Amino acid sequence: MDPKVQRRNRIIMTSLCGVAFTMGLLAFASVPLYRMFCQVTGYGGTTQVADSVTGQVLDRKVRVRFVANTDAGLPWTFKAEQSEVEVRLGEPALIYFQATSTAKEPTAGQAVYNVTPDKVGLYFSKVECFCFTEQIIQPGETVEFPVYFYVDAAMDAQPNLNDVQTITLSYTFYGQRSKALENAVAAYYRAAAERNG
């Protein structure tokens, strides 16, 4: 075979392998990169996470509504203890959600969340939220989950947010399988066996 053709074929093969490797790397990294992009920009209603409440409190008020859902496969009832609150921009608020398990053994769930309108996500900050960790609930148990949040006063300086009077914070719990849940189920059945003797 002609050396020029062999060289060209090697270059094409190397280029194709490089493209395939790059596409695989991007596919692997796309979920964490997209999550990071959403957290930085508030895109898609992704809220911000804050270590503490800082900044000024303004007179401008917004109403924050709360929506609670569970995936059909998770045997919990889940609700907000109050349907809405009115807060001033920059003012912290503490509200509670409540979940009750209707299962016959321990179950686990983790919540995903967003705010609407989406454009508010960059200014909605959660200091404490149950959505950051997996939650395990015993059969028949009712658990209260706190959410400590504020709407950043910087929102007031954004002309495209002047029309926002109501913000909706939505949570949906999805069932989880984990080693912690397996341990909780095993402990539950051991305790039941000891009680029955």
Results as ranks from 00 to 15, higher is better:
L89A: 09
V127P: 10
F145Y: 12
V120S: 10
Y34K: 09
T142R: 03
F124L: 08
G42F: 09
W76P: 00
L16K: 07
A186F: 10
G55T: 03
A187Q: 15
V57K: 03
D163R: 08
T133W: 09
M23P: 00
Q135S: 12
Y171T: 00
V19S: 08
V64N: 00
Y123L: 11
M1Q: 13
V5R: 15
Y96G: 02
R8L: 10
T107P: 03
V115G: 00
T22H: 08
Q158G: 01
N196H: 09
V19G: 02
A50S: 13
N69Y: 07
P106C: 01
F130D: 09
G73R: 14
F173H: 04
T70H: 06
G175V: 04
R8S: 11
F124W: 10
G175W: 02
G18L: 13
A184N: 02
D51W: 07
Y171S: 01
V115E: 00
T46I: 06
S83T: 03
F37R: 04
E194G: 06
V64L: 03
F124D: 03
V5D: 11
N162I: 00
M13Q: 14
E91D: 04
S83P: 07
T46E: 15
G42N: 01
E86Q: 13
P159K: 04
S83D: 14
L94C: 05
L181D: 04
M1N: 12
C131D: 07
N160I: 12
A191C: 01
L25H: 13
Q138W: 08
V151R: 06
A27N: 12
K104V: 14
V151G: 03
T142W: 04
L94A: 07
